[in-house]
Write a protein that binds this DNA or RNA. Structure first.
Lengths: 231, 231
DNA sequence: TAGATTGTTAATCGATTAACAATC
DNA sequence: TAGATTGTTAATCGATTAACAATC
């Protein structure tokens, strides 16, 4: 059974499974029928040992001496991750970022659809974006409960995020993907993931300075950086 | 010196430093002058030991028996991360997501500004968004070199991402924040971070199913999920 | 001094890597 | 059989946690 872990898979292993899944889907489109852990790791920036280890948390899906059958492995990973069940999602906040999320075609392609959108701005309420009618915030609870929505994307300003989160939790949401640059507090039964642009950019800023300090940079590229660094 | 690590800080420690920084900035606005590792950890979802350990990679910024002076600690963390130096960034791809990134006020607030934008669509070239004129792709190299830009945000379709990356690397870019759902190949002196929405959503999908399977859910909330899961 | 809190070391925990027997 | 590649175990590596001496 795909769904019964042997031991506990690290969070990072799950994220790598997503990459394997995407790559397997692409391979299938190209008509590739079989693949080795070595090759799959090269395509995903992982290592062969890691690919096999990650999969082994959930079962054995390959054949020794042969490799993995692309279609079969893709199906297994899909089941492990719960993709393709048509998970309905709610979007809160239809500003620039929220609109971009509504338009993002990666979600429907993986079986996740934004079926409801909410905003506190009366000028946005009632507008239709990608077939979704923007509703006012006070309809969050009844809508989410009526449609049995358990996943929500939070694209509201930082100051509003915690308040909206509490509304969503009260409405029964179990998974929250937060885009606001704040640390949200949620009860233990609610799962939280965050996309934090400042953290990503600041991390790059740090590693850049570190690599320059260590003199790891290639000469050509380095001169540019040093010029930039020295203003 | 803030910039000279004792031992090597884990990647996750750097990301936590970003959270500390943001929280310290907020505390300062509220007029709070002093804080303990215990309190700071509560505000950032970390632990007190972790806060002290993370900071200790870079120096000792507090006073035993007293705690940390908010302003001073903020300044130290700012220097460690390289924030506030006015890093200029380039944005490639001005679709829905790219436009949202141009409008994102978290970047300028932390000292990172998008100063150039590029797109392959002639209808977008020449338009002005937030004071930035969208330029055609064939001007990437000369513009980036002329302005000594070392950081770029990649918001192009998955199929175009690797090609654009190679142009950016050839132009001297050292840090890349990728939003396209692909595994990019970059030379070792180029630093890469990725924001991958599918991975985040699929991770939540996985932990949701896992928690339901383990029966960890509270009864009330659970009934909703089970109803959703069983269609 | 007594109480508080840091900075740092040692102990624990967990994840990755390497190696190899199993097997196609 | 010989060559290839998995699944799994053991060894390594690294990060987190706990504890406490230093010190305000």
């Amino acid at each position: 059974m795909s769904g019964s872990p042997r031991g506990k898979a690290p969070q990072m292993a799950i994220r790598r499974l997503s990459m394997y899944y995407r790559t397997l889907a692409a391979l299938r489109e190209q008509g590739v029928e079989s693949i080795s852990s070595e090759h799959l790791s090269a395509l995903t920036g992982s290592t062969a040992a890691q690919v096999r280890r990650d999969l082994a948390y959930f079962g054995s899906f390959g054949r020794r001496g042969v490799g993995y059958e692309v279609h079969s492995l893709q199906t297994h990973v899909q089941k492990i991750l719960g993709i393709g069940e048509g998970w309905p999602m709610a979007l809160i906040g239809v500003g620039n970022l929220g609109s971009a999320l509504l338009a993002y075609d990666g979600f429907p392609r993986q079986g996740f659809r934004i079926v409801e959108a909410f905003d506190s701005d009366p000028r946005r309420v009632g507008t239709v974006i990608r077939d979704v009618v923007v509703k006012p915030m006070d309809q969050i609870k009844e809508t989410i409960q009526a449609r049995h929505i358990v996943m929500a994307l939070l694209a509201v300003p930082a100051k509003a995020a915690q308040g909206v989160t509490e509304q969503l939790v009260a409405a029964g949401v179990r998974c929250l993907l937060n885009f606001a640059p704040v640390t949200l507090k949620v009860p233990p039964h609610v799962h939280l993931a965050s996309v934090d642009l400042s953290i990503e950019v600041e991390y790059l800023s740090y590693v850049l300075r570190e690599s320059v300090a260590e003199g790891q940079a290639a000469e050509g590229a380095c001169s540019d950086v040093l010029r930039a660094l020295s203003g």
